[in-house]
């Protein structure tokens, strides 16, 4: 057994080493991943609404899986790779990910507060299932609260994005930007943690 003294995190492809301790730049054992992302790293694209794992707004990818960053302790994410909404666009050109572009094109947001979480849940889905049915998208987003009711436009945007991503994958040349593409392969039978 041990107590962590430092935490290594890869966030949007960039490595971070954080000390565990009491200073505001450190990670306290009780700090959530959402807190660390927002307040230590300044990545405020990840939103916190209910802070109890019930609304999905804080969804990020942890080693490729959609998880709720409000309900994970940062000290327990040591060694993990995290992708936030800030990591979706192309890091070189700043060009929008096809998913983001589809959300723009379909006005698949209203107040926008839940949009980062919805984008990340959708990203996890499309990484695993590039051709989801509408029902599968609905199921993947079941834990994402949107109070303005943008659900219908989101479902259209996701189908559109999935189509664009499949097309892009068929084209030669640079593939679709995948900031979490280096996530380790998951072994369904045994888990990886």
């Amino acid at each position: 057994m041990d107590e962590a003294t430092q935490i290594r995190l890869t966030v949007n492809g960039r490595g971070h080493t954080l000390a565990v301790g009491p200073r505001s730049a450190d990670v306290a054992p009780s700090d959530t991943l959402a807190h660390t992302l927002r307040h230590v790293m300044g990545l405020t694209g990840t939103k916190v609404s209910c802070d109890r794992g019930a609304c999905g707004m804080c969804t990020v990818l942890l080693d490729g899986r959609a998880v709720l960053s409000c309900s994970l302790l940062t000290v327990e994410c040591d060694g993990s790779s995290v992708t936030t909404v800030e990591g979706l666009a192309d890091p070189e050109t700043g060009g929008l990910h096809p998913l983001q572009q589809a959300f723009v094109d379909h006005t698949a947001f209203q107040c926008g507060f839940c949009t980062p979480g919805i984008l990340m849940s959708t990203k996890a889905l499309l990484d695993e299932n590039p051709e989801p049915t509408v029902g599968e998208v609905q199921e993947a987003l079941a834990g994402n609260h949107c109070r303005c009711i943008t659900h219908y436009h989101v479902l259209e945007a996701v189908q559109d994005a999935a189509g664009r991503m499949r097309e892009a994958a068929l084209e030669p040349g640079p593939t679709v930007s995948e900031s979490s593409s280096n996530a380790p392969e998951r072994d369904v039978a045994t888990g990886t943690r």
Binding site: L96, V104, T115
Partner: peptide, 9 residues
């Protein structure tokens, strides 16, 4: 504000 919303800005 579309681009700001989808990029988390």
């Amino acid at each position: 504000d579309a681009r700001d919303i989808v990029t988390g800005r």
